[in-house]
Design a protein around this nucleic acid. Structure first.
Lengths: 341, 341
DNA sequence: TTGAAAGCGGTACCAG
DNA sequence: CTGGTACCGCTTTCAA
C-alpha cells in the first residue's frame, strides 16, 4: 500500500526555511505577515497538497465542527426529510453531521448519547425514542455546556430549544375540515398515549370537536401501539362494527389510514361518501391511494433546517444559557378525495 | 452557564498521587499494573465521571473510529435503507458515521470528499452522483491508504470494493416474468444512459428478450433524465401513441411506473390485461397502487450493511492493497397484479 | 510495577 | 514581520 504520508506544517516550515508559527500564520492569513511569505507558503502548500490535520486543530481548539443527530428511525419519510434539512443547514455553516439511529430503543439512545459526548461533538439534535422517560443521558450535554436541540418528540424535562411541527394546530384544522365537510361522528385512531405528537394530535381533535359543539363516543379513540397499517385495519373494523360507528376517521398517520381504507374497501363502505378518512404525514402513498387520501404535510425539511440553525447558533455562543425556545413549523392541510363528502 | 470542566487523566493522577502514565495504563487495563492501582483509578474515574477526550485519543492514534458516508439523496427509500444498514453495521463495531448528501451534484460530492478527507475519517462509503465522471476526489482517499467502498452507483476508475444490488440479473428476471406471462412487445423506460444501474437494468432487459428470441422496437427504450412520475406519464403516452405500441412496460423505478399507470388509466388502457407494467425498487406506493404494481425489492439494508462491513474490515487491515471485490446483493421479484395478464 | 518525558500537528502567546 | 515555545490530553517508550 502506498500510504503517502501527509505533508505537515513542520514539513513546510523546514523546506521553506521558516518557522512553524510563520507557516501557520501565513496559511491562516493573519495580519502581520508579509505578502511575500504568504504567497510562498500558500504556493508550497498547494503544490504539495497540504491538508491541515483537522484532528489536531480540533484538539487544540477543543471543538470538532461536528454535530450529532439522534433519530428513532432513518427509513421514514418525515425523519429522513428532517435529516436532509439538518444536513443542508450544517453544510452551509461548515459543520459535519454524525447520525445515529435508536430504533425507538432507550438503550440505543443512551449508547448513542454517550458515544457522541465522548466524541466531543459540538452539540446534538435529538428526537427521543418512545421508550424514553428519564433524560439524564441528554442532560449530560447541557451539564457540559454543550448545546442540545430537540425536535419532533421531545422531553419537557430538558431545558433546551425545541422544534416541531404544529401537531395540535394541524390536527385541529384537519378535524375542522372534516366537520365543515359535514361529517359529524368523527373517530380518531391515535398513537401511544404518552407520546408527545400523539397527545398533541389528540388535543387538536378534541379542540375542533369542542369548538363545534360535537360529541364523541369514548370508544372512538383507540390507541395504536406501533402505528401500522395492520392496526389501522383492525381499529377501523372495530369502530365500524361497534354499536355506534363513526362517519369519519382521523388517523394518526397515513399508514394507519391506509389500513383503515383497506378495511373500508373490504367491507364495501364507501369513502368518502359513507365515511371520510383523514391521514397525517403526506407520505407518497396518500397521493396514490384510491380514493386519494387527505392528509397533513409536516415540512420535515424545514423542521430539520430550523433545528440545526438554532443548534449552531447556540454552539457559537457558548456563554449563553440554554433556553426553552419553542418553534413550531406550520404544517399544511392537503385536501384530496377521501374527505370530499 | 455551568460548563463543568471535564476531568482529565492529569486530574486523576494528581488527586491520586500517581503519574499520568500509570493512570492511563490502569484505565486501559494494561499488563504490569497492580490490581490495587487499577481499582483505585477505575473507582475514581467512575466516581468523577471521567470521559476520555476522544479527540486527544484520536489525535494520538491517528484514527477517528469514524467513517464517512456520501450519498446522492437521503430522502429516498433505497438510500435511506442503505444508510440504515450501514449505521447498523458501524454501531456494532463501535464506529460512528458521518453523513453527507450530494443532491446528485458533482460539486457537492467533491466538497464532501475534501471535508471527509480533512476530517480524517478512517474510510468512506460512497455512491457517486449522476454527474460524476472524473474521480480524483475519491482517488485521494486511496492515495492516502484510506479505505473506500463504493455502493449502488460506482465508477470503474477506482480500485475499490463495490457493493450493489444485482440490477442486471433482477431486470432480467423481471422481464422474463413479463414474457412468461405472455407479453411480447415489451418496452423499457430507462434512465440516463451513462448511469450504471440504468445500464445494468437495460442490459438485463436485452438479455431476457434475446434469450426468448423476442424483437424490440428501438423506439421502445426512452431515457428519463430525472426518473420522475411525470416522465413516466409522458413516455408511456409517447409509447402508446406511437405506430407500434408495446403490450408491456418495464419501468426503471416505481415512481416512473406510477406515472405510466396514471397515463394508462387516463387513456382507459387496461392494466394488466392490455398492457403489463413492471416497476423497480418496491417503494411503498407499489403496494398501494391500483392495480398493485409488480416490482423488484433491492434489499438496501443488506447493501449498506455489507458495504460497511467490507469497509471496516479494510480499515482494520491497513496494510492490504485495496481490491476490486465485487458484491451483489440479490434482489427479489415481487409479483403483484400489474403483470398478471 | 511505576514514573518521566517525548510527541502527535497544530495554535497562540511572548519576545525581539 | 518573524521565531521560539508552551500546550491541548493522551499514549507509549525508556529507564528506574
Amino acid at each position: 500500500m502506498t500510504e503517502k504520508k501527509r505533508v505537515t506544517l513542520k514539513d513546510i516550515a523546514r523546506e521553506l526555511g521558516i518557522s512553524v508559527s510563520t507557516a501557520s500564520r501565513a496559511l491562516n492569513s493573519y495580519q502581520g505577515i508579509s505578502e511575500e511569505t504568504i504567497k510562498l507558503v500558500k504556493d508550497y502548500a498547494e503544490k504539495h497538497h497540504y491538508i491541515p490535520n483537522s484532528i489536531a486543530v480540533n484538539f487544540r481548539k477543543n471543538r470538532t465542527m461536528t454535530i450529532g443527530m439522534i433519530v428513532p428511525e432513518v427509513v421514514h419519510y418525515y425523519f429522513s426529510s428532517i435529516i436532509s434539512g439538518a444536513l443542508h443547514a450544517a453544510k452551509k455553516q461548515g459543520y459535519r453531521v454524525l447520525i445515529s439511529q435508536t430504533d425507538e430503543k432507550l438503550e440505543n439512545e443512551i449508547r448513542a448519547c454517550h458515544n457522541m459526548l465522548a466524541g466531543n461533538v459540538d452539540g446534538i439534535l435529538i428526537s427521543i425514542s418512545n421508550e424514553t422517560e428519564e433524560v439524564d443521558h441528554i442532560q449530560d450535554f447541557l451539564d457540559e455546556g454543550k448545546a442540545v436541540v430537540q425536535f419532533d418528540k421531545y422531553s419537557e424535562k430538558l431545558k433546551s430549544p425545541i422544534v416541531t411541527s404544529d401537531d395540535l394546530e394541524s390536527a385541529y384544522r384537519a378535524v375542522t375540515h372534516l366537520i365543515e365537510k359535514g361529517y359529524r361522528k368523527i373517530a380518531h385512531i391515535n398513537g401511544l398515549a404518552n407520546v408527545r405528537n400523539s397527545k398533541d394530535r389528540l388535543a387538536g381533535y378534541h379542540k375542533a370537536l369542542k369548538e363545534h359543539g360535537l360529541d364523541f363516543d369514548p370508544n372512538w379513540i383507540p390507541h395504536c401501539k406501533d402505528i401500522t397499517e395492520e392496526e389501522g385495519f383492525a381499529f377501523a373494523k372495530q369502530l365500524m362494527e361497534s354499536s355506534n360507528p363513526p362517519d369519519a376517521i382521523f388517523c394518526i398517520t397515513d399508514s394507519v389510514a391506509l389500513g383503515a381504507m383497506n378495511y373500508l374497501k373490504q367491507a364495501k363502505i364507501k369513502v368518502p361518501d359513507e365515511v371520510g378518512v383523514m391521514g397525517f404525514s403526506n407520505w407518497k402513498i396518500s397521493e396514490v391511494m384510491n380514493p386519494s387520501l387527505s392528509t397533513v404535510e409536516q415540512h420535515g425539511f424545514e423542521v430539520g433546517k430550523m433545528a440545526a440553525e438554532i443548534l449552531l447558533k447556540a454552539t457559537q455562543n457558548p456563554n449563553e444559557e440554554s433556553t426553552n425556545q419553542f418553534t413550531e413549523i406550520k404544517s399544511d392541510l392537503i385536501i384530496r378525495e377521501s374527505t370530499q363528502k
